[in-house]
Design a binder for these strands. Structure first.
Lengths: 142, 142
DNA sequence: TGACAAATGCAAATTAATTGCATATACTAA
DNA sequence: TTAGTATATGCAATTAATTTGCATTTGTCA
């Protein structure tokens, strides 16, 4: 087998009560080894490159299980499809260039304070948020 | 005609350089008369209820035109489809209960300062943002 | 190791959104 | 007010993302 996946993620799967399968390890690895949120076909491509045999439908099912178990998190960039990133990734947001589609991470957004405030005021229990910025990246402004 | 739509929105359409048609007035009214972002089928249903004859495809086209002209604004709750709200609504965000699907408006989020900061630091030109919170509403926490 | 539940593959169905084209309708200028 | 024209709409068909059903395979645990 030419499985070139480096990091061992079996424990993450065990903790999530998911059976350890090559496809699942591959999907976890795909999310881990990319700095941008991945769509299903990104992941499927990654698996192929790494000699992990898995149908696109399987990837959908795995990603859904991951989302349910809190291993992955869905993100939508107005593309008509969902992307996913590791849920363990530190709190950050995204900037999407409306011209070239480039995605940049934005950190240092202290939304947490805001959240606490809302929790208190309205009695809501906020578990996560999604903050995306849209505009033009440096190059596309020229 | 049993068109029960109250408020007259013709001026909004005229200002946007869009011809005034029953379907467009109906869609505007659907957005106006709802406090939650509507998806296409919500809008189509509203039109039917109000005896406005319009195909679902027409609603898609109208909503796209509205978005382009700045009358409507797309919102994503990571459901794999888009929702829309009146663009004239003041800057606010949403809280979506993951249990019951309830949507509440959140205002008083001063993201603007954040944006300015990011603009300066990274040279990005931010035109709009999307901030949604997910969690449990008051009732669903019990 | 063997049994059983869960995961996967493949085909088919569903859903969101778009496109093409023929027809109907709103608006403009006379 | 009406005719002419550009635009909007309806309907059918298409595309792309995602889901579902079912038969088969594969992890896991006793």
């Amino acid at each position: 087998m030419t499985n070139t996946i480096k990091h061992d993620c079996t424990q993450e799967l065990r903790d999530a009560d998911l059976k350890i399968t090559p496809a699942r390890l591959g999907v976890l690895s795909a999310l881990e080894n990319s700095n941008k949120p991945q769509d299903i076909s990104d992941i499927t491509t990654y698996l192929k490159k790494n000699s992990v045999k898995a149908d696109q439908v399987t990837v959908f099912r795995i990603i859904n299980a991951f989302t349910e178990k809190g291993l992955a998190r869905p993100i939508q960039f107005n593309e008509g499809k969902l992307r996913y990133e590791q849920a363990s990734a530190s709190d950050h947001h995204h900037f999407i260039c409306e011209n070239c589609g480039d995605i940049e991470d934005i950190s240092d957004c202290h939304i947490d304070d805001l959240e606490k405030n809302i929790n208190n005021k309205k009695g809501l229990l906020i578990k996560r948020h999604s903050l995306e910025f849209f505009g033009l990246c440096k190059l596309c402004q020229l």
